[in-house]
């Protein structure tokens, strides 16, 4: 035992603990404890006494809060909207990033460094500011976009009930495409040159090479991007929160995160807000797990 601890000195549990304690302390305080507390809170409810006078009584209600959340039409509506948002956003953003990265990697592409910097630019713009810029770009009277479309005879109200979802998708596409282009482009640069050379000798065209050689080789990077994109879409809060000030089409319960915020701060029902947060976290964890499973199976195949 004594000799063992001596040879293990510096690599043993005690030193490791010294290095890990700071992280796991903040992790516990900032993630685990809040989630556990919310879980507890979500099983209780504040019940006002008969006439609404006197202190509210807190009592255990089991899954009642969860039932109420799921029975709320605004919450399920928000979930549906979020699903639709994912269906629009993920293919547009990921597809756009793949195409742009492949173009950037084409032999005939010029000024790669400049293009990389420019395409990444939107990511340096905070989400609040991005939403704010686009809110102006969607507003008739200020927007060069609306004006250009009008002069072409197209009248679109980007902020009406039907268009506002695609309009918000566009903001997210703008913010995230460039970021993922850089990841995919780096993956493309790591594709062994010999393979591409062999394809060229065999007479494969540039487009053919891109589709049948480069694309399959960046699938692992792509699956990671999709995973993080899925997690990201569930975070949707900032953009609709900013856009909601410019249009009534985005209600205060437009997506689940807004619903939970509204429950806590406008309806003052903290127990329901806790239940909604737990639902969102579980949904996120479940979805990410599903995506991870799916992509590891895809990569094996």
């Amino acid at each position: 035992m004594a000799t063992k601890s001596r040879t293990m000195s510096g690599t043993g549990g005690r030193t490791a603990a010294l290095f890990l304690i700071p992280f796991f302390t903040v992790f516990t305080v900032a993630m685990i404890a809040p989630v556990i507390y919310s879980l507890v809170l979500s099983f209780y409810a504040q019940q006002k006494s008969g006439l609404g006078f006197g202190g509210a009584k807190t009592s255990f209600v089991g899954l009642e809060n969860y039932l109420q959340v799921f029975q709320s039409e605004t919450f399920t509506g928000g979930l549906g909207r979020l699903a639709l948002y994912c269906l629009l956003y993920i293919p547009c953003m990921v597809g756009g990033a793949v195409v742009f990265a492949l173009l950037l990697d084409a032999t005939v592409a010029r000024a790669r460094k400049l293009f990389q910097l420019l395409v990444f630019l939107p990511h340096a713009v905070p989400g609040v500011i991005a939403a704010l810029i686009w809110a102006y770009l969607y507003t008739p009277g200020v927007s060069p976009l609306v004006q250009a479309l009008e002069s072409g005879g197209i009248q679109i109200n980007f902020l009406d009930v039907h268009m506002v979802l695609p309009s918000i998708v566009n903001i997210a596409v703008w913010e995230w495409t460039g970021y993922n282009v850089i990841i995919l482009f780096t993956a493309l640069q790591a594709v062994p040159r010999e393979i591409l050379e062999a394809a060229r000798v065999d007479g494969a065209s540039e487009i053919r090479t891109a589709l049948s050689i480069k694309f399959p080789l960046i699938l692992p990077a792509l699956s990671v991007i999709i995973l993080f994109t899925v997690i990201g879409t569930l975070q949707l809060f900032t953009e609709p929160a900013i856009i909601s000030k410019a249009t009534a089409s985005v209600t205060s319960t437009w997506v689940p995160n807004l619903w939970a915020y509204d429950a806590a701060f406008n309806r003052h029902n903290l127990n329901q807000a806790a239940a909604a947060s737990i639902i969102i976290a579980l949904l996120a964890a479940g979805l990410s797990l599903a995506v991870t499973r799916l992509s590891s199976r895809m990569n094996k195949a």
Partner: peptide, 11 residues
């Protein structure tokens, strides 16, 4: 894997 915004209200 857990999105930031999901833990904001609990926090």
């Amino acid at each position: 894997l857990i999105p930031n915004t999901a833990t904001v209200l609990p926090m």
